[in-house]
Design a protein around this nucleic acid. Structure first.
Lengths: 338, 338
DNA sequence: CTGAAAGCGCTTACAG
DNA sequence: CTGAAAGCGCTTACAG
């Protein structure tokens, strides 16, 4: 690999001058600048990023911790982050926490050891304690949370208004005439499963429908199979249910599959609304009415906030934490009556 | 951030000794070793990876270039790579080429500039020229290709036997009684779309079915909509077709959707086989018979090969290129007659 | 068993 | 306009 020294020797000038010439410092003569540039190009010089990092104390690299990569929403987020980062000359190291708190902690440590310029994270479902996150913040490494966040932590965040979106979905079920509306909710921990539940409940209350806790099913792994399982359970427990709002598309698709199998007509007998708008939701039959969760946008915004913080930190400005809440839409398809 | 120097000062010993103690060199007394370890832990010392990289000339980081992240197969590959890399203490920088040759070239350059220890790549469909890849190899940066590879390039590769898999799928259609079998193939460039086509053709020939080129449709973007479009075209052109082997699941799902819309019964009138076994294939109706393409395994294997090459390079051993061909299975579901 | 010194390849404050 | 020198924080060959 070619170094500054070799270019300097080639031209019989000093390393300092070569370095300055390549960085377009104005205090180098035009002639020298041109000469250096040409020689560098000829020798295919590339700055040794290890040395640059050491000197400048930044790596132009950020870390990303995500619960699960093979997931339509999260992979869209990753894409949004990477595309935006590339524009600003940043590279992204991706790690998967597998919804495990222990792994997440280790990975935060790893990234800090690597001295990334900043961290983007969506919390694991298993994460109840935020000490590892506070430590990052205390060390003044910029960190932005997205999607699965911790409300108590003071840092920038990008989310959707889960509560509002769930409210919108439930309201729609009420508007099309549903009287007994069930809800499949996510585990007790990630904030968004709480918020979606609260939105559901609020919509009922606002429409003078008495909240019946036996209509709410608490799921664990949010899988296709769990969707089938609880759909079956629901049919056994409550034959009068005519609408259901489900925490996430995959589970909703499982539920619809179970309804199909049991000869229950969707939407004639039961109206189903999911959440996330996975690509899959549009190709199943009946296609799924759902809330569109803008993953790509979320990724882009999360990176933008992080980038701003990295710049501000460099300029020793005070960092102002920001909260970006992205809009969601209800996408009406065949799984609900029109 | 704590440095070796601070630990040394704290204990009144030299930086050299601190460094050696932390790396468990045997020529440091047990007592000193213990003392240093404790002090380091107390001060929460973390080696500055920038300095370590500069000294050791390695970053324990690899680059990954993938055509598209939001894609069930590729995201599985990414997951396989990252999980395996983590085990070996490597981090992964992911870049998306968007199927563009220009972007791919730039990204290779970026990764080389960052001095990653190795590169993993699945070629963009737009890549016809492999100079950028050869350059990496000439510079002796380990590089392993997977899935979409270039046969002419000499390097390690992980693939499936696309030809054999396509043959298997087509043979199955023949076995269940199909007489007129169409094929939706991918663009002319990625090797695997060629191989899948050749497997299809070979199966016909081996079964004394005359190959009819008008039954083969050349697709471009391999989308859901293209699947619908060509399904419609196929029905117009060849009302006698009773089976179709389609290059990838997404297109097959589009085709099935079109058949459904037009009242063509799958599999009664047309048997459909896809390729890849996206998760989606199992949840649509009718569920899709397809070839299982082991993405996670492919990622794992690709990293393993790369890791071996990185180690061998460090030991100045000659690098032996390897070709790993993974097994595929035909997953029989409802879109084909039993 | 311990440590002084060189060096990885840059950047930049400073002198001339 | 040019360059000598210090320094980023490590690792390691070498001397004692």
């Amino acid at each position: 690999m070619v170094t500054l020294k070799q270019i300097a020797e080639e031209l019989g000038i000093s390393i300092t001058t070569v370095s300055k010439a390549l960085k377009e410092y104005p205090d180098v003569s035009k002639k020298t600048r041109k000469l250096v540039r040409e020689t560098a190009a000829m020798l295919n010089y590339k700055p040794n990023s290890f040395a640059v990092n050491l000197r400048t104390k930044e790596s132009k690299t950020i870390g990303l911790i995500i619960p699960e990569i093979v997931h339509h929403f999260f992979s869209s987020v990753i894409k949004g982050i990477i595309s935006q980062a590339e524009k600003k000359g940043y590279l992204v190291i991706t790690l998967q926490s597998n919804e495990s708190y222990e792994l997440e902690k280790k990975q935060i440590d790893l990234l800090i050891s690597k001295r990334v310029d900043g961290i983007l994270i969506s919390l694991a479902n298993g994460t109840a304690d935020y000490k590892h996150i506070s430590e990052v913040l205390n060390q003044e490494t910029p960190l932005v949370m997205f999607d699965k966040i911790a409300k108590v932590i003071k840092c920038s965040k990008v989310t959707i208004d889960d509560r509002k979106a769930a409210y919108k979905a439930t309201q729609y079920l009420i508007d099309i005439g549903c009287k007994r509306i069930a809800h499949f909710r996510g585990p007790l921990l990630p904030q968004n499963s709480i918020d979606r539940f609260l939105g559901y409940k609020q919509a009922l209350t606002d429409n003078n429908i008495i909240y019946d806790s036996s209509l709410v099913y608490l799921l664990n792994d949010m899988s296709f199979d769990e969707g089938k399982f609880y759909a079956n359970q629901l049919l056994k427990d409550h034959s009068d249910v005519d609408g259901i709002f489900i925490n996430t598309d995959l589970v909703a698709i499982g539920a619809i599959s179970e309804f199909n199998n049991q000869g229950i007509k969707v939407p004639e007998q039961i109206n189903v609304i999911g959440f996330s708008n996975w690509f899959m939701a549009s190709v199943i039959s009946p296609s799924l009415t759902t809330i569109n969760q803008p993953g790509f946008e979320m990724g882009k915004n999360a990176f933008k906030l992080l980038y701003k913080e990295i710049k501000d930190k460099k300029k020793k400005k005070v960092i102002n934490y920001k909260n970006i809440v992205l809009e969601t839409d209800l996408i009406i398809r065949e799984s609900t009556k029109s």
